Amino acid sequence: MNYIKHLTGFFEKVSTDYDLNPTHISLYMAIFQLWNQNRFQNPISISRDELMRISKIASTATYHKCIKELQEREYIEYNPSFNPFKGSTLNVLNLDFYTKPIAKKDIKKIKNKAKTQLEFNLVNEQVDKQVNEQAVNKYQTSAKHVPYINNTNSINIANEQIQKNKRKEIKNKEDTEQKEIQKKRYEKKNKIEQSIPPDKNEVIAYFKEKNTPTIEAEKFYNHFESNGWLVGGKTKMKDWKAAIRNWILNSQNFSKQATQSFSGTNKPQPQHLQTSIHKNYGEPL
């Protein structure tokens, strides 16, 4: 195992993987350290606490997210153990395919020697990368040799453009969502305002829905039709259904007060006038 070639292949691969961030690289370096201590033998037994300590990852959720994404992108093969008394194991996948160009005559041989589907995918990915780089180099210059620094600058410019496009896409999405929210608010506001004054049949139907006599609907409609649908004679009505509910509550309160005034001690009694019963009409006024 040549760890120099492996690390070179890792950084070649990660330089074009735009979804990875420094946390993924830090975690992979911690895994590489444990792999080094195990003399680069697979599989290795790992400890979540130890990897988090070495990679300086403080969140368990972040750790699991990063290790899952490293596995999806074929950097590692993670075998979790759900037994608290048995540690999880991990295979570090070979990344030497990314360190040197593959000759066309050797592609078929390497594919035949690939033992697993993961290795086969790595070979295909390296071949595609080699073809793309050749096309880029041919487009940039007609010289036989392209300086490495120019190639690096081209990659950096491409990465920067991709990140800029992503930020622009996110901003456009946020602007679109904000416009939709404002549009819905405006439509909701206009819908309420346009429903005033309501149709008389709608008012009667709503009174019936509240089990209130139709005469009350007539009183309500005539009252507010006469004052221009103003609440308290000043404020423009916003919700006529809420006004009907208040009207019903107030009418019930008036009915109770009227009933109480004509019952009990308040009921008018005969011969309780403020005059004497036996009046002498001979006396002067």
Score class of each variant (00 low, 15 high):
Met1Ile: 06
Asn2Gln: 00
Lys5Tyr: 00
His6Ser: 05
Glu12Val: 05
Lys13Phe: 02
Leu20His: 04
Leu20Thr: 03
Leu27Ser: 04
Tyr28Thr: 09
Gln33Asp: 02
Trp35Lys: 07
Phe40Thr: 00
Asp49Ile: 12
Glu50Asn: 05
Leu51Gln: 04
Arg53Ser: 08
Lys56Ala: 12
Ile57Trp: 01
Tyr63Glu: 09
Lys65Met: 03
Ile67Glu: 08
Glu69His: 07
Leu70Ser: 07
Gln71Ala: 05
Glu74His: 05
Tyr78Trp: 06
Asn79Pro: 00
Asn83Lys: 12
Asp96Arg: 06
Thr99Val: 13
Ile102Met: 05
Ile102Ala: 01
Ile107Met: 10
Ile107Leu: 14
Lys108Arg: 02
Thr116Glu: 00
Phe120Cys: 09
Leu122Ile: 10
Leu122Thr: 10
Glu125Lys: 14
Lys129Ile: 11
Gln130Val: 01
Asn132Ala: 14
Glu133Tyr: 11
Ala135Ser: 11
Val136Ile: 10
Lys138His: 01
Lys138Cys: 02
Tyr148Ser: 08
Ile149Cys: 00
Ile149Glu: 15
Ile155Ala: 10
Ile157His: 14
Asn159Leu: 15
Gln161Lys: 14
Ile162Trp: 04
Asn165Met: 13
Lys166Ala: 05
Arg167Lys: 15
Ile170Thr: 15
Lys171Glu: 12
Lys173Ala: 14
Glu174Trp: 14
Ile181Met: 06
Lys183Gln: 09
Lys184His: 12
Asp199Ile: 13
Glu202Leu: 07
Lys208Asn: 07
Lys210Ala: 15
Pro213Gln: 08
Glu216Gln: 06
Ala217Leu: 03
Asn222Ile: 02
Ser226Ile: 09
Trp229His: 02
Leu230His: 15
Lys236Cys: 03
Ala243Tyr: 01
Arg245His: 08
Ile248Arg: 04
Asn250Glu: 10
Asn253Arg: 04
Gln260Cys: 01
Ser261Thr: 06
Thr265His: 06
Thr265Leu: 02
Lys267Tyr: 14
Pro270Gly: 06
Gln274Met: 10
Tyr281His: 09
Gly282Thr: 12
